[in-house]
Nucleic acid binder design. Structure first.
Lengths: 126, 126
DNA sequence: TGAGTATATCGAAATATTGCTATATTATAG
DNA sequence: CTATAATATAGCAATATTTCGATATACTCA
């Protein structure tokens, strides 16, 4: 069959393209450091330096991971003299993390195996 | 400083470990096919065959991607004769996708560049 | 048991991500 | 202009993910 098309906000996408964007968005969240960054930024903007201290990471790592979030439009960067202050671009990201946390809690409570199961599944080359 | 520890549900994690789990969860969502699967499953359980038809994908791909979601506890699998029916394990996942969609909509509306910007940013080796 | 159907998994090549080190870039002060 | 501080990026090896074809498993029926 010919590739479906989806109307959306006056733009037309090939089917699956929208999901590709969404996947990129989720991929931007799929890193422990970036999650920690967002959990900090939910409480307010931070300069790279502040993040670096709170996360106890090397500067290039911090800038690199911030770049991933920036490229996905999740955070904004604003120069302040020598510093750059990062902030959530959309407060809904906080809500997203909340929902994720609730799902996560349910999942932990679900099985009596708790995270032992998660750990096991986490090992790729089993 | 010594590695922080976090109390949670009676279990104790090294700091950052929790974020690692969360990152794995998000990574499970970070694929166009898996997003499409979840968007279908939000509307009700499906067998592998049904998903395969609705997605127009080869069977091994469908099983493989379902395995990723299964390993992260996002979907459950139940045998029904020869078939296996998959379903969301937690309806909150639907809510998560909703929030993500809203963030996504905001982001599109934000810049007049619309997804042209997204496409540009998406290219890694610019 | 043997054939057939529905799923699942293996193995390898292609691609993408990560962390690290070194080096750029940009702004400020002197 | 020079030095310095705060960020950003390049390049590369290590690791992880994705895809696709082939094969394996599991269940049903005759």
């Amino acid at each position: 069959m010919p590739p479906q098309r989806v109307e959306r906000r006056g733009e037309s996408f090939a089917a699956g393209e929208l999901q590709t964007f969404k996947a990129q968005f989720f991929r931007a969240l799929a890193h422990p450091v970036r999650i920690r960054m967002l959990e900090i930024l939910v409480r307010g903007g931070r300069t790279v330096q502040e993040l670096q201290q709170e996360l106890a990471l090397d500067q290039p790592i911090v800038s690199q991971q911030l770049a991933v979030l920036r490229n996905q439009g999740i955070v904004s960067a604003q120069k302040e003299g020598l510093s750059v202050r990062y902030a959530l671009r959309d407060p809904l990201v906080g809500g997203l993390l909340d929902v994720a946390r609730r799902i996560f809690d349910n999942r932990l409570g679900d099985s009596q195996g708790l995270l032992r199961e998660l750990r096991r599944e986490g090992r790729r080359g089993q």
